[in-house]
Nucleic acid binder design. Sequence first.
DNA 1: GATGCCAGCTTGTATGAACAAGTGGCCCTC
DNA 2: GAGGGCCACTTGTTCATACAAGCTGGCATC
Lengths: 251, 251
Amino acid sequence: MGRSRYEEIAEALRQAIRSGAHPLGSRLPSESDLAARWGASRGTVRQAVALLVSEGLIGSRQGARRVVLRQERRQSFQQLNSFAQWARAMGCEVSSRILERTVRPATDEEAARLDAEPGGEVLYVLRLRHLDGEPVMVERTVYAEWVAPAVLALPEDCVSIMDSIAERADVVAHYGEHLIDAVAAGSEDARLLRVRRASPLLRQRHLTYTAAGRAIEWTDDRYRAGSVVFNVMNSAAAAPLERHAGPDVTG
Amino acid sequence: MGRSRYEEIAEALRQAIRSGAHPLGSRLPSESDLAARWGASRGTVRQAVALLVSEGLIGSRQGARRVVLRQERRQSFQQLNSFAQWARAMGCEVSSRILERTVRPATDEEAARLDAEPGGEVLYVLRLRHLDGEPVMVERTVYAEWVAPAVLALPEDCVSIMDSIAERADVVAHYGEHLIDAVAAGSEDARLLRVRRASPLLRQRHLTYTAAGRAIEWTDDRYRAGSVVFNVMNSAAAAPLERHAGPDVTG
DNA sequence: GATGCCAGCTTGTATGAACAAGTGGCCCTC
DNA sequence: GAGGGCCACTTGTTCATACAAGCTGGCATC
């Protein structure tokens, strides 16, 4: 499926692991074995297994054979950056409604995040999102000025804004940065999500970039407690997650 | 500093980026340039820049020069898995107190997480952790039976359990899996963290493995809202973070 | 039977070469 | 001036080889 050789091999290994041909905790064949079996060089096989290691499927340490750590496949970048794509892959029915859409000057923080001039205009969008009919997430997004026209052209019940502007305006997300913490529901949050005020919400703020490193949007998503869980796999070789002190501590 | 050539080059590039020699948004020299400059082959340089890409410092796409995306260095695995190491690196004064330590049969979930027999014994530890004198996190950990003796031998005010058992019993964490969500404070949480009952807490449950894939501990950490923020960087090439539906949705 | 050592296997690091694929800027045309 | 096409440059993929470093299991020893 993957167009390059090492992606093919990686996909085949993923399948073999998921199907149980390489059970959880078992040791994978050596690189030389895999290279011979696939008629590829050891370097190519190493690229394939490096992919699986970075996905957290297998563990690797010098001298010892690689070990199977998990069986499920990791989500794609698209599914993490797009609520709609994720929900669809989960088999949930997703719907969204834009409640507000206004062009206004950027605050200082927004300008800094989007790498725009302070006081430049941005597009603010308030959206309520449902899973299987239940309100699950409130989304407050600020779009950079250069994508605003594409977003303003979309209908109120657009399911996936990122998908739509990728298709119509060729604005494709490539990098993302995510800040995750917990906050108390404000009165607007509480009304929209149908929870009590000050009840716990999981907040995911994220910044999305194009392939060239240009900021697209800065958004504040608040999930009803219990509706989603974030999952990170890390190792001594790769630690994609960071922990930062919040205002209560730095203060 | 790094013992291998590509780690040296990566560290030098990190320094250059952090110091502003390669400003944010600027384009890095080509692989050939770097290879010539460092007297290394292109393959070695590629390993170095691949490291920085995986750390989210630079972006990469075929045909175009690499772009500087951030300047700060990413935390190490140790700092993510050890609250004490992280706090120390932040320059905060950290203290901990073990409030409870009991050996009891594992629940079904605990046995499944630790890959132990249901009903086998585990060590339950309840700990309260402070940053700069303020209570910030409640930690409820279940240790696998084979590490229990090492943990039981530690004093009540041990600052870092993971550090201690790594040094004394040669139990070294190598992989970790993290589940992050928001919950309401229970009465015990509220009393210990000095917040109101049902106020929002950021929960980080995590499972720690040895290099050989053996489970060490399964823990439930609850942070006072506002005290910490988790941060993840991802790209189309690597998405280390997943989102999962919680019980409210799968219901 | 327990312990320690060693040989062979396996992964990690590094080189050099070649071709494929995508980008960006230049130049030419309309 | 706008648009399109061409080309040099850059990153991505793959190969073959060599050596370094760490692990495992079996053998010899005590």
